Simulated assay, not measured.
Amino acid sequence: MGSFTGKSVIVTGAGSGIGRATAMAFAAEGAQVVAGDRSEAVHATVELIRSAGGSAYGIQGDAGEEADVIALVDTACDRHGGLDIFHANAGISGGLTGLFDCTVDLWQDILRINLIGPFLAIKYGALKMVERGKGAIVCTASVAGLRSGAGGVPYSASKAGVINLVQTSAQQLSGSNVRVNAVCPGLIETGMTKFAYEHARAAGKTDRIGRLNPMRRGGEPEEIARTVLFLASDDASYINGQAIAVDGGLSSSHPVTRQEFGKTAA
Score class of each variant (00 low, 15 high):
88 A>M: 04
89 N>C: 14
90 A>R: 03
90 A>F: 08
90 A>L: 05
93 S>N: 13
93 S>D: 15
94 G>L: 04
95 G>D: 06
95 G>T: 12
96 L>P: 11
97 T>C: 15
97 T>N: 10
97 T>D: 07
97 T>G: 10
98 G>T: 12
98 G>H: 09
100 F>I: 13
101 D>S: 15
101 D>N: 11
101 D>Y: 07
101 D>G: 04
102 C>Q: 14
102 C>A: 14
102 C>R: 00
103 T>P: 07
103 T>D: 08
104 V>E: 14
104 V>M: 12
105 D>S: 15
105 D>N: 11
106 L>F: 04
107 W>G: 07
108 Q>C: 09
108 Q>I: 10
109 D>N: 14
109 D>H: 10
109 D>K: 14
110 I>G: 01
110 I>K: 05
110 I>P: 02
111 L>G: 09
111 L>Q: 12
112 R>Q: 13
112 R>D: 02
112 R>Y: 02
114 N>M: 00
115 L>W: 12
115 L>M: 09
117 G>L: 00
117 G>V: 02
118 P>W: 08
118 P>I: 00
119 F>D: 10
119 F>L: 14
119 F>E: 09
121 A>V: 06
121 A>N: 09
121 A>H: 06
121 A>L: 05
122 I>D: 01
122 I>T: 11
123 K>F: 08
123 K>Q: 13
124 Y>N: 07
125 G>M: 08
125 G>N: 06
125 G>V: 04
128 K>A: 11
128 K>I: 00
129 M>T: 11
130 V>W: 03
130 V>K: 11
130 V>Q: 13
131 E>C: 07
131 E>Y: 03
131 E>F: 02
132 R>Q: 14
132 R>T: 10
133 G>Y: 03
134 K>Y: 12
134 K>Q: 14
135 G>Y: 03
135 G>K: 02
135 G>D: 07
136 A>V: 13
136 A>W: 10
137 I>A: 09
137 I>W: 06
137 I>G: 03
138 V>H: 13
139 C>Q: 12
140 T>D: 13
141 A>G: 10
141 A>L: 10
141 A>R: 08
142 S>V: 02
142 S>L: 08
142 S>G: 11
143 V>A: 10
143 V>F: 07
144 A>D: 03
144 A>G: 15
145 G>P: 03
146 L>Q: 15
149 G>L: 11
149 G>W: 14
149 G>K: 09
150 A>L: 08
152 G>L: 05
152 G>I: 04
152 G>T: 05
153 V>H: 04
154 P>F: 03
154 P>T: 00
154 P>M: 04
155 Y>I: 05
156 S>F: 06
156 S>N: 11
157 A>L: 10
158 S>V: 02
158 S>Q: 04
158 S>W: 00
158 S>T: 04
159 K>D: 07
159 K>T: 05
161 G>T: 06
161 G>D: 10
162 V>F: 13
163 I>P: 10
164 N>P: 07
164 N>W: 12
164 N>V: 08
164 N>E: 15
165 L>G: 09
165 L>W: 06
166 V>I: 05
166 V>G: 00
166 V>E: 02
167 Q>N: 04
168 T>D: 01
168 T>P: 01
169 S>W: 00
169 S>M: 03
169 S>V: 05
170 A>L: 07
171 Q>E: 11
171 Q>M: 12
171 Q>H: 07
173 L>R: 06
174 S>A: 14
175 G>T: 00
176 S>P: 01
176 S>Q: 00
